[in-house]
Design a protein around this nucleic acid. Structure first.
Lengths: 164, 164
DNA sequence: GTTCAAGAGTTGAAAGTTCAACTAACCAGG
DNA sequence: CCTGGTTAGTTGAACTTTCAACTCTTGAAC
């Protein structure tokens, strides 16, 4: 990385980038705050519950959680430990692979998720989705998909982030 | 907050929202990582330097930093302390108000910012701006501006986040 | 000119995240 | 089968962020 001359952003790009930065921070902080005050869990914990809920057996290997959330395994270990202590998740030995650990959503976790999902969607609507028209959102979706694709490609442990 | 029936997102909205979530995380993590490995500062620290650099006297009151970054005062105190220890910022008593503290960018801070700005812009281009066309970006800018406006309005200490 | 609520900033502990080191289990190749 | 290279997950320390309590100053009301 760090090529020769700096190609600065033009004023429009600068504005859009700043708008993105400020808007993102505000949005995420708000959703996180609402989730915490209304249900006592963070957005990260909420998202773990969502991922578990999408599985027929409400179960996911630790590594799968880590990967799908782009979190370190260590972080997942700590977070799941807290959620386990709170009774939202239970740990089980994964069968087949004795190294593995399954995180299983408990009934209490499911209950909490029902309520939390409502809050979350209401927040996403109120602070994001219902704020602009469909086309602008589609555009935003395209951009963010492009971002993900690009970053996931050159992912493999973040080597080769040099001048292509 | 938390009205009666949940109005779920339709599939398109769901997709766009997820794309936003994943893309944002990836993008911010990447920019932060690049900033840390190449210049030893976090994005938050970088942004403080940027804000200071925009002032003719390279100076900002602690509270102004906090407000413009949407950080708590406590957080700014800690961050500025670290940056002061690193020699990037110097603290001075603000004149006029004996309670006040000015954060002043040092020569070392300025030096670092020059290099860091290059990295940052290159990253923003490579992972974001150069990835989609102008119209899509304009749309994204509009959406994120709407988000900011809405959230800043009902800001005053986050009361009245009830049914409008 | 007191009094006292509000504002600016700091402090230290608690909570959460990252980082490096570690254990245990798996899985090739010889 | 055994030897090393991965992979899964945990641990604990270092670091960052949050939270509540605290000090000092300001400014308005009386």
């Amino acid at each position: 990385m760090t090529g020769s001359e700096t190609r600065w952003l033009d004023p429009d790009q600068q504005n859009d980038w700043r708008a993105y930065l400020v808007g993102s921070t505000l949005l995420m902080d708000t959703l996180d705050r609402e989730m915490r005050t209304e249900h006592g869990i963070s957005m990260a914990e909420y998202e773990i519950l969502v991922r578990l809920s999408e599985r027929p057996d409400k179960t996911l290997r630790m590594a799968q959680i880590a990967e799908s959330m782009q979190h370190s395994r260590s972080r997942v270990t700590h977070t799941v430990s807290r959620m386990e202590k709170a009774g939202l998740i239970r740990r089980e030995a994964a069968e087949g692979d004795k190294r593995g650990v399954d995180a299983v959503m408990t009934a209490a976790g499911w209950e909490l998720l029902q309520a939390a999902a409502h809050t979350h969607v209401a927040g996403v609507r109120a602070h994001f989705v219902d704020l602009a028209d469909k086309d602008d959102f589609a555009a935003l979706g395209r951009v963010m998909n492009a971002v993900s694709d690009q970053l996931l490609e050159e992912n493999p442990k973040f080597e080769d982030i040099r001048e292509h």
